[in-house]
């Protein structure tokens, strides 16, 4: 028994180095997108949308993948961030260094209040209430159509500035969004390895046991909910400023469902999986939907297939394949 545990740290270190290298290469590849799409601004815009979708998926994974809480209404916070930022940009200032912190601060407050009620519900009730929350936010856009623009969406959001400089060029936008994605990823990985992240995982694993070792599961779940909501709202705010408009579709259950699918497809709790899942499927969705109107059928079918054959998501499947290959190689060399 102790034989192979003693040698494990070495393999683990080598594995970590490989993974670090792979992440670095992937990060660099992502950052290089504007360099080779320079003359096709449309591709860059699509890539930017993929990055935003990735941030939203990451935000949901911070909830689902950490504490195991299943949200069917995550678009509520994405859309809330978009409308709040858009409205503030129109009424107060186009300075995003004020707008985005404002959006995050308001979301922290509101999601703490709503989350306080939600996280005290168990399992199914929580999921159903999140769905209801999404639909309430959706309905609010229509109820307050005087200021939100109702069905037409919120139009005429001014071009934002950062420290007074206008952010308008697609490449600048892309790098800005991409930088925020990388920072969020780094934050998510850091939290995962921190005591807080480990306490979250304990809740996902076994909430009852967690309570009996003294973990305040209510507060911990609330923290995870607030972090998740705030990041989703930040992504929504970024989208509104990037796009110059927000639409009620952003709040719809359909949007929530899509984000949920990205996370499941990518691999719940893997952090990087949902990010890749969201990016890949945003791009795929664009091209496939321009070819056929029934892309949703293919997407749904693919989703069902993945859930059945690779319940750990694409990233989970990839990781276990990788583990099998490396152990086979190790076995051969030993």
């Amino acid at each position: 028994m102790s034989d192979h545990t003693a040698t494990m740290p070495m393999h683990a270190a080598a594995d970590r180095r490989m993974k670090g290298l792979a992440l670095l290469v992937a990060a660099a590849a992502g950052a290089s997108v504007p360099l080779w799409t320079g003359n096709v601004p449309f591709v860059l815009i699509l890539a930017s949308q993929a990055v935003i979708a990735a941030i939203v998926a990451l935000s949901l994974d911070l909830l689902m993948g950490s504490t195991g809480l299943l949200s069917f209404g995550h678009a509520a916070w994405y859309g809330f961030g978009a409308y709040l930022t858009g409205l503030a940009a129109k009424m107060l200032t186009p300075e995003m260094l004020l707008l985005l912190p404002l959006t995050v601060a308001v979301t922290i407050l509101l999601s703490a209040i709503i989350g306080f009620v939600l996280v005290r519900q168990i399992g199914k009730t929580f999921a159903i209430l999140t769905l209801a929350l999404g639909q309430i936010m959706f309905a609010l856009v229509f109820v307050m159509s005087g200021i939100t623009g109702g069905e037409d969406g919120l139009q005429g959001i001014p071009v934002p500035t950062a420290l007074g400089f206008q952010i308008a060029k697609p490449a600048v936008w892309y790098w800005l969004l991409y930088g925020i994605l990388l920072a969020s990823l780094a934050g998510a990985f850091h939290i995962r390895r921190s005591p807080l992240g480990k306490s979250w995982l304990a809740i996902r694993e076994n909430t009852e046991r967690a309570r009996f070792i003294g973990l305040d599961t209510g507060t911990l779940k609330l923290l995870s909910y607030v972090v998740s909501a705030s990041l989703a709202a930040l992504a929504g705010g970024l989208f509104a400023l990037f796009n110059g408009a927000a639409s009620p579709d952003m709040l719809n259950w359909f949007e929530s469902g899509k984000v949920l699918m990205y996370v499941v497809l990518g691999g719940v709790g893997t952090i990087i999986g949902p990010v890749i899942g969201a990016a890949v499927f945003t791009v795929t969705e664009h091209y496939v939907s321009s070819v056929t109107n029934s892309w949703l059928i293919y997407f749904g079918g693919f989703f069902v297939l993945i859930v059945i054959v690779a319940p750990g998501g694409l990233f989970g499947a990839g990781a276990s394949l990788w583990a099998r290959i490396t152990t086979a190689r190790r076995g051969a060399s030993a």
């Binding site: 850091h190 005591p195 480990k198 306490s199 304990a202 070792i213 003294g214 973990l215």
Partner: peptide, 28 residues
């Protein structure tokens, strides 16, 4: 009742951190 997908060491560490009031810190 244990944390099945976590390592044996982490199962214990969770309880120690809880006892020491460290469960919510984001830096260690």
């Amino acid at each position: 009742s244990v944390f099945r997908n976590l390592s044996v060491l982490e199962n214990i560490a969770l309880a120690i951190r809880s006892r020491e009031g460290l469960s919510r810190s984001i830096w260690q």
